[in-house]
């Protein structure tokens, strides 16, 4: 209910278009060698859609997310949110990292307020801070410092902190990767609840294939060196999804096959 109140308009999400984007980094050994983290990647995400990006490490998932956030700029190609070209970070594109990256010198409450303070909106939107703390179930820890929180709680604060700006696009870089299996599953439901309530467009980078199937509308599978999109799989299971249904397990097998992890190592 709380989430719906603060969402106001039904759809907060916006479309995302990634057009022929390449990004190269200097090699670690010398100046001349360049490694392509991303090579001509194109992708479009509909408003309110939740897509996952999976792939082995080094396939450029996080690089792509940083480009979408505007923290880096591509060597070629273009990224657009709605009709706007992405050139710099913006409060409309929230990013949650694997490490919650809470500011240790601020209390939980002040951490959640960062977005409002940074944009000079704290005075008029102070009431939302309480709303978001309730939304992630942390009102009792408002005055605690981050090192008193467990991993799951810290990540919930990070989520609330990103959501308080009402981002049109929420980028999640393995946000649940560091949590234990049980907390992770609970947090997956929580993220889904937030997504449904706020209709935010979400891009989720993950290592966890089950998580990708459980959560997303589409799964983008990437391959490394150079980072490319290998395949995009539409997940056509009804929500809420059942982690043990035969369809779920079939899809899981298919993706493992694609990533060459199905079994019986051939190398």
């Amino acid at each position: 209910m709380v989430a719906l109140n603060s969402a106001q308009s039904a759809a907060e999400g916006s479309t995302l278009r990634v057009d022929g984007v390449s990004k190269a980094f200097r090699g670690a050994d010398g100046v001349s060698t360049r490694t392509f983290a991303l090579d001509n990647v194109s992708l479009s995400v509909a408003a309110g859609e939740l897509i996952s990006i999976v792939g082995p490490s080094g396939c450029g998932k996080s690089t792509l997310l940083r480009l979408i956030a505007g923290l880096d700029s591509p060597n070629s190609g273009e990224l657009r949110v709605g009709s706007e070209v992405i050139t710099a970070p913006n409060a409309e594109r929230g990013l949650v990292f694997q490490d919650p990256n809470l500011f240790p010198w601020l209390t939980v409450r002040r951490n959640i307020e960062i977005g409002l303070v940074a944009r000079g909106l704290l005075r008029e939107k102070r009431h939302e801070v309480d709303e978001f703390m309730r939304l992630v179930g942390l009102e009792a820890f408002a005055n605690a410092f981050p090192h008193h929180l467990s991993g799951g709680m810290a990540q919930r604060v990070a989520l609330a902190r990103a959501l308080i700006n009402h981002p049109k696009l929420l980028l999640l870089d393995e946000p649940l990767g560091a949590l234990d299996a049980f907390t992770r599953m609970r947090m997956q439901d929580e993220v889904l609840r937030l997504w449904r309530a706020r209709q935010t467009t979400m891009v989720l980078v993950t290592h966890d294939i089950d998580e990708a199937i459980y959560m997303s509308d589409r799964i983008v599978i990437m391959s490394p060196r150079p980072g490319r999109i290998e395949r995009v799989i539409v997940v056509e299971l009804d929500r809420p999804r059942h982690r043990n249904s035969p369809e779920f397990l079939n899809l899981r097998g298919e993706i493992l096959e694609l990533l060459h992890f199905a079994g019986a190592a051939t190398a």
């Binding site: 505007g70 923290l71 409060a91 960062i114 977005g115 944009r119 990103a162």
Partner: peptide, 10 residues
């Protein structure tokens, strides 16, 4: 990463 977080928050 603190600076990155702050920048994505506006």
């Amino acid at each position: 990463s603190y600076l990155d977080v702050a920048r994505t928050l506006g």
